[in-house]
Design a protein around this nucleic acid. Structure first.
Lengths: 339, 339
DNA sequence: TGAAATAATGTAAACGGTTACAGTAAACGG
DNA sequence: CCGTTTACTGTAACCGTTTACATTATTTCA
C-alpha cells in the first residue's frame, strides 16, 4: 500500500516533450515566456501523462507552501461554520490550500504549534495557544499573520479583524434593564482570556454600573462558549440548594445559549416570562429556537473573508497593521421579552 | 516581507552539536539508536536554536506529507462541525495535519482536485467532486482513501463509513402516516447524486408505497441540504398560485429544516397543527427549534472519528474494504405532532 | 545598420531533509 | 578466543522542483 509505485515527474514530461525541465517549469508557473508551439505540446503531454507537480518539491525549491493555516482553540462550536466558510472561499479562489489545526494554551508545553512558518505561508490566528510572546517573535521574523477575534500585543502591529463587542453588549444589557425591568442578570462567560468574552463581560459590567446596579459575582458563570459546558453550569447553578435569584441570562454566545435554554427548560423556568435569555452571534438557528433568540448579529463569515484577504495582502507585500472592527447589531426576538 | 531571512537547518544543528546530519535526523525521527549523551546534547541545541524541521524537505525526502485531506462539497452546513470535530481529534492525536478543501462536481472541469497524492498521505472523501472513475484510478494506484457518507464504486473495495438512511427514513415516514395520519408528505431532498439524499428519497418512496400511498412528484422539492435553498424552495412552493395540498414535510436534513420552518412560519402555517415537519441528523439545535424538531439522530462525530482511524489504518498497512454503516435512531419531538 | 533589448531555451546548482551503505567499537555466544 | 551480532556514527546520493546564469536568435530603435 505504498503511495505511488512510480509517479511521473517533471523530467519525464520534459523528456517526452523534448524540452528541458526548466521550460516545463516555466510553462507550469507561467513566469517566463514559452513559445506557443512548445506550450501546446506540453499541455498535451502533461495531460496525457497525468502529470501533477509534486507539492513538497515545489515548496522546497520555491520556499512557498501555497498553504495558509487557520489556528483555532477547538471546533466545538457552530460559530466556526461561517468563519470557515469565509476563509475557505478566499483561500480556494487564490488557488491555495487550507490547513485547519487546533491548539490551545493548555496543550502548549509539550510541543510547538502544529502549523507555522515550516508548513504554511501565513497564519490566521484565532487560538490563544500562541501567546503574545510567540506572536511577537513570529512577527519579528516577518511571518505573515492576521489575528482573528483577537487584538495584537502592544507594539506589535499585526493586522487584526474582529467584531464590536463592548458597546453592543452594553446596549443589550441596558435593554434588559430599561425595557424589561431586569435587575438580576446572570452572565455566562466564555473561555477565560478569550477576548470576545472579556469584552462582553466588560460591557456587561459597565451597563450594570451605568444603571445603578451592582455586580454580583455569584451571577457570573463559566460557559466556555460551549453548549454542553453552559448546560452543566446552568444545571449546577439551578440545582444548588441556595439558589441565587436571577431574572435574565446574558449568554456569551448562541451555542452556549442553547445549553442555557435546555437547562432552564428542564427546570420548568419559562422564557421570557420568568427569565429573559440572550445570546451572541446570531447563528443560523437563532431565529428558530424556542423562543426565538434575542442576540447580537456578528458578521462572522465576513470576518473570515476579510481576514483571509488581508493575509493574502501581506503575502503580496501590501503591509498593513490596522485593527478592523466590524460592526454588530442587536436582533430583538422573543427570548428577551420583546414582541 | 520574505518568509524567514535565514532559518536554522539540520546542518546548523549538526555542526553546533558536533555530529552528522544523519545523527540529527535519526534523533528527530527516533528510527535508529542514538547515544544518550548525544541525545541530550541535541535536545539542548535544538531547543536553544529553536530548530523546526522544514516540512517540505521532510516530505520530499521521505515521501510522506504527514497531512491528511478532507474533501467536502462545501461548508455551508452545521453538519460539518461534528464531522470536523471527529476527524480533527484523531488527526491531531496522530501528530498529523488536516487540509480541508472543497471541490464539487461542477467545478471539476477546470482543474484537478486541490488535494490528492501530491500533497496528502491519504484522503477522506465526502465530496462528489471526485467521480467514480477518479476514485478507481486513485485506488488502483494504492492511494489511501476512506469514503464518508458514500459507498465505493463497483469492484473497487475502498473502505467507507456512513450511516443507515433507508430503514430509518421508512420508519420515520411511516410514523407520519400511521401515527399522525398524514397522507400528503412533501420531501425536501438534498443535492442530486448525494447518496444520503438518494437513500432518504428511496426510504420515503418505499414507505409511501408500502402504505398504499402514491408518490406525487410535485411533492418532491430541491432543498440542497442548505438552509437558504430550502427556504427559497418552500417559499416558491407556497407562493405558487396553484398550491398543492400537503400535510407534512420530511426534510432531508436539519439545516434545511430550519429553512422550512422559517418559510412555513412566514406563511402562517402552524407546526405541527397544520403541517408536520421532520429533519435528519439531530444537530445540536434540533431540540430547541420552535417547535422542537423530530429528526433522526446520526452519529456524525463518530463517523468522522472512525473514518479517520480507518484511514490511519491504511497508512499503517492494515488494509480494509469494509463498508461500515453506523446505526441511526428516530428522535420524536413535537414538530411531527408527538408529545 | 549596428547596438541593445527581448524572446525562448538549456545547464546545473540549490532547497533541507532522509536513508542506503559503510565503518568502528563494544558485547555476545559457543 | 574468535566470529558474529549489535550500537552508534558518518558520507553522500537522492527526493522533484525552481531559478540564477548563460546562450542564441530575433526585434527594436536611434
Amino acid at each position: 500500500m505504498t503511495k505511488r509505485s512510480s509517479s511521473v515527474t517533471i523530467r519525464d514530461v520534459a523528456r517526452e516533450a523534448g524540452v528541458s525541465v526548466a521550460t516545463v517549469s516555466r510553462f507550469i508557473n507561467k513566469n517566463a515566456p514559452v513559445s506557443t508551439e512548445v506550450a501546446e505540446r506540453l499541455q498535451d503531454v502533461m495531460s496525457k501523462m497525468r502529470y501533477v507537480p509534486h507539492a513538497a518539491a515545489r515548496n522546497l525549491a520555491s520556499r512557498k507552501t501555497r498553504v495558509i493555516g487557520l489556528l483555532l482553540n477547538n471546533l466545538h462550536n457552530d460559530f466556526f461554520v461561517p468563519l470557515l466558510n469565509g476563509v475557505e472561499a478566499v483561500v480556494r479562489k487564490k488557488g491555495y490550500n487550507l490547513i485547519v489545526a487546533t491548539y490551545h494554551a493548555s496543550s502548549r508545553d509539550h510541543m510547538h504549534p502544529p502549523i507555522g512558518p515550516h508548513n504554511t505561508d501565513g497564519l490566521l490566528v484565532f487560538s490563544d495557544g500562541l501567546m503574545d510572546e510567540d506572536l511577537k517573535s513570529l512577527h519579528a521574523s516577518g511571518f505573515p499573520m492576521v489575528l482573528v477575534h483577537r487584538t495584537p500585543p502592544p507594539h506589535t502591529p499585526i493586522p487584526s479583524v474582529t467584531v464590536e463587542n463592548i458597546e453592543v453588549t452594553q446596549n443589550l444589557v441596558e435593554h434588559l434593564i430599561r425595557v424589561h425591568g431586569k435587575r438580576r442578570i446572570l452572565f455566562l462567560r466564555g473561555p477565560v482570556n478569550q477576548e470576545d468574552s472579556l469584552r462582553r463581560e466588560a460591557g456587561y459590567r459597565s451597563a450594570l454600573q451605568a444603571n445603578g446596579l451592582s455586580v454580583d459575582e455569584n451571577l457570573i458563570l463559566n460557559g466556555d462558549f460551549e453548549r454542553d459546558v453552559a448546560y452543566e453550569a446552568m444545571n449546577e447553578f439551578l440545582g444548588n440548594g441556595k439558589r441565587v435569584a436571577f431574572d435574565a441570562v446574558f449568554t456569551g454566545d448562541d451555542d452556549a445559549a442553547i445549553g442555557v435554554l435546555k437547562s432552564l427548560h428542564e427546570f420548568g423556568i419559562r422564557i421570557p416570562e420568568d427569565v429573559s435569555v440572550t445570546g451572541f452571534d446570531d447563528l443560523g438557528f437563532a431565529p428558530f429556537l424556542n423562543p426565538p433568540l434575542t442576540t447580537v448579529r456578528a458578521p462572522t463569515e465576513k470576518v473570515g473573508q476579510i481576514a483571509t484577504e488581508r493575509l493574502f495582502g501581506l503575502l503580496e507585500s501590501h503591509p498593513s497593521d490596522e485593527v478592523i472592527i466590524l460592526p454588530t447589531e442587536i436582533i430583538f426576538r422573543r427570548s428577551c421579552g420583546c414582541q
